[in-house]
C-alpha cells in the first residue's frame, strides 16, 4: 500500500515536467499561429521588415535571427581561447592539484553571477573602453554583446570540457609516453582525438546558453531592428526584441514576438539535442 502511494506520488511529480513543457510548446504554437498565417512561415523567417505602421504592419524575424546567430557565433569564437586552456589546465596539466581546484572553482563562480551584473559591467566598463579604442562610436553593438557573452559561457564550456579531458584513460596516455611522446604530442594525438567529441559537445551546450541570454544582450546590443552590417553595428537579438517590446505589443505584433520566441525555442532545443547526443556518443566510445 505504502509502496503504491509512493509510486503514484513519484509518477505524478515526474509527469508534471513533461506536461509543463508540452504546455509551453502548445501555448507558443497557438499564440504564434496568427503571425505565421498572416505572413507565411517562410516569409516570416526571411523578411527583414519590422514596421508598426497601423494597418500596414510588417513583421519579419530575419534581423533578430541574424543578431542572435552572430552574437552567439562571435561569443563562441571569443570564448575558445579562454575556456580551452582552462579545461586543459584543470583536466590534464595540473589535474587534481590545489591550483587547479581553485581555478575551476573561480571559473564555475562565473556561471553563478546574475546576467544583469554582466550587463552592468559591460555597460559601464566595457562600453567606454570600446569607445576610447575607437572601435565603434556608440560603444553598444554586436561586438560588445558578444564579448560579454563570451565571458558568460566560459564556465559552461570549460568545466564540461575538463571532465572529458580527465576521462581519457591513463593507460592510453602512459603508453604514448612510454613510446617517447612529449606532453604536447600526448595532448595533440591522444587527448584531442579521444575527448574531442566530448569537448565539442560542451561547446554546443555553451552555445545553447548564449542563444537565449536576454538581459545582458538587451543592455549592450543597441536595440535597433536592422540587420547588422558589421560586427560593430547595433542590432537586436531574438531574446532582446522580445524583452524590449512585449510590454506594449498586442495583436499581430504580440503574435510575431511569440513566433520569434518559438523559433528561438526550436533553435535552442535542436542545439541542446545535438549536444546531448554527442555527449552520449563520447561516453560510449
Amino acid at each position: 500500500m505504502n509502496d503504491k502511494l509512493y509510486r503514484t506520488i513519484l509518477f505524478i511529480a515526474a509527469l508534471t515536467i513533461p506536461i509543463v513543457c508540452g504546455g509551453v510548446v502548445y501555448a507558443l504554437i497557438t499564440d504564434a499561429y496568427d503571425a505565421f498565417e498572416h505572413f507565411g512561415f517562410f516569409r516570416f523567417l526571411t523578411s527583414s521588415e519590422w514596421s508598426y505602421t497601423e494597418g500596414a504592419e510588417q513583421y519579419g524575424a530575419l534581423p533578430f535571427i541574424t543578431g542572435t546567430l552572430l552574437t552567439t557565433l562571435l561569443a563562441l569564437l571569443f570564448c575558445i581561447p579562454f575556456s580551452l586552456p582552462v579545461a586543459f589546465f584543470v583536466g590534464e596539466y595540473f589535474k587534481g592539484s590545489r591550483v587547479a581546484s581553485i581555478l575551476s572553482t573561480v571559473t564555475d563562480l562565473l556561471a553563478g553571477i546574475p546576467s544583469i551584473i554582466y550587463g552592468l559591467w559591460g555597460f559601464y566598463t566595457l562600453r567606454p573602453v570600446i569607445i576610447t579604442l575607437n572601435i565603434s562610436p556608440q560603444g553598444s553593438g554586436i561586438l560588445t554583446a558578444s564579448l560579454v557573452l563570451a565571458i558568460m559561457i566560459v564556465p559552461y564550456a570549460a568545466s564540461l570540457s575538463a571532465e572529458f579531458i580527465k576521462m581519457v584513460p591513463n593507460d592510453l596516455k602512459e603508453s604514448a609516453y612510454s613510446l617517447g611522446a612529449t606532453r604536447a604530442e600526448v595532448v595533440r594525438k591522444i587527448i584531442f582525438p579521444v575527448a574531442g567529441s566530448g569537448i565539442f559537445s560542451s561547446y554546443i551546450l555553451a552555445i545553447g546558453r548564449a542563444l537565449g541570454e536576454t538581459m545582458t544582450v538587451t543592455m549592450l546590443i543597441g536595440n535597433t531592428n536592422n540587420i547588422p552590417t558589421s560586427i560593430t553595428s547595433t542590432g537586436n537579438s531574438m531574446a532582446s526584441i522580445i524583452a524590449n517590446q512585449f510590454g506594449e505589443a498586442d495583436g499581430l505584433r504580440l503574435s510575431s514576438l511569440i513566433a520569434i520566441g518559438l523559433i528561438l525555442f526550436l533553435i535552442t532545443a535542436v542545439i541542446n539535442m545535438i549536444g546531448k547526443m554527442m555527449i552520449k556518443r563520447a561516453r560510449i566510445s
Partner: peptide
C-alpha cells in the same frame, strides 16, 4: 517614418 509610439529609426541606438 511617420508618427507612432514605436517608429523604425534607421540609425543610432535604443534603450528602454
Amino acid at each position: 517614418y511617420g508618427t507612432g509610439k514605436s517608429v523604425n529609426f534607421p540609425t543610432g541606438q535604443a534603450a528602454k
